[in-house]
Simulated scan of single mutants.
Amino acid sequence: MVNATEVIRARLSLRRPTGGQVELLLCRPIDGGVRDARVWSGLARPASAFKRGRTVLAADGTELIAGERLGEQVTVRSKAPLWQLMQSHGEVPLPPYIRRPDGPKQGDVGDYQTLFAKEPGAVAAPTASLHFTERVLGALDARDVKRASLVLHVGPGTFVPVRNEHAEDIREHVMHGEWYDIPEETVLAIEATKARGGRVIGVGTTSVRAMESWSKTGNACGEATLFIYPGYEFGVIDGMITNFHLPRSTLLMMVSAFAGRDLIIAAYEEAVREGYRFFSYGDAMLLL
């Protein structure tokens, strides 16, 4: 099961009318789809530049007017859909731990996109899928391994760790919502696989989160706010392919919930000992 979300050029370098530089990460369209929305929510730096009613300017002169705040995010609106501005002046929002001292590279646009990407809307890639190439897919086809897809638009919350004040009770951590959609043909493929005694393998934590959200709510489309941590009983997946994650991340808690904390710790110790690569462009493991 793969996630067909596509990473959008969501990071915009903007300026105040006085000339000061600001940055905006567009996270979600508010008044329409990705291609036609004029109002977006996003993360701003510095946030003070986006007080309600203030204007910031893009490189092509496009005006963005700050609106109300939605929690940690700001909203901005423009006279025209922001999609074209993103395509012409936006950058791929690489994870915060990938630094580009000389600025973004042109190759980031393709390198940080999976083979399955079809539905634009994510601000982070479902990176477990980066391991899949045409050669790998051909080998899977030769073994009659079936594939199906869903969409979960990965948001910035995927990088938010559990705070120290929640260490005693991680259930207090609030998950950021992410929109997901599991098509009817994918639902039928899952049900048929289960009926014949097959296994459903989630490629990446995002695919797992979407399927388990469907399992718990009965909704094949909606907002995924499910927090999976040790003690959780999985309702759909029988295995997952996942990268090695950051400490204190909710992703690490999800894989610990599936495989058990002791086994995950042992796997990470082995990875460190053998020099495996961690995080977005790192190595992966198969959990069964």
Rank of each mutant, 00 (worst) to 15 (best):
L82A: 11
L115G: 01
E63F: 01
V7D: 10
S213D: 07
L150A: 09
E233F: 02
R35F: 00
E270G: 02
Q113N: 09
I265V: 15
V74C: 11
P46H: 12
F279E: 03
T75Q: 09
R143W: 00
I98Q: 12
I65W: 01
Y268N: 05
V272T: 02
P29L: 01
G260F: 02
A284Q: 04
S215R: 15
P156H: 13
R261S: 13
A49Q: 03
P95F: 06
Q87W: 00
S149F: 10
M1Q: 03
E68W: 02
I182T: 08
G32S: 04
R16M: 14
E168L: 13
A271N: 11
E274I: 07
P93F: 13
A284W: 01
G155F: 05
P101G: 08
F244D: 04
K118H: 06
M86D: 02
T205L: 07
T5V: 04
V76Q: 05
G231V: 08
Q106Y: 01
T205I: 04
E68Q: 15
D111R: 15
H176F: 11
T206F: 06
A66K: 09
R99W: 00
S207L: 05
I170Q: 14
T206G: 10
F258C: 02
A259F: 06
L130V: 11
A189R: 14
P101Q: 14
G204A: 14
L263N: 08
S78W: 00
F159D: 10
F132D: 02
I30G: 00
A220Y: 11
S48T: 14
I237Q: 07
Q21G: 09
H176T: 07
H245I: 04
I241M: 09
A210L: 07
Y229C: 09
L152Q: 04
R143L: 15
D60S: 03
E184D: 15
E165N: 12
A58L: 08
G235M: 04
S48D: 10
V56S: 06
T250G: 03
S48H: 09
A4F: 04
L14N: 06
A266V: 03
H89M: 03
R147I: 12
I265R: 14
D169Q: 07
G231Y: 11
S207Q: 05
P120Q: 10
P101W: 12
G197V: 08
A192T: 09
A267T: 13
G121S: 03
I30E: 12
R135A: 15
R45N: 14
G198L: 06
K216V: 12
Q113H: 08
R69A: 15
R196C: 09
V236I: 15
D36Q: 00
S256P: 03
R163D: 11
V154F: 06
T217K: 07
A189M: 08
Y229M: 12
S88L: 14
V174N: 10
P96R: 10
V154H: 10
E185R: 15
G177P: 01
G61E: 05
G121M: 02
G103S: 11
A124M: 08
I237C: 12
F50R: 06
P46S: 12
T242R: 11
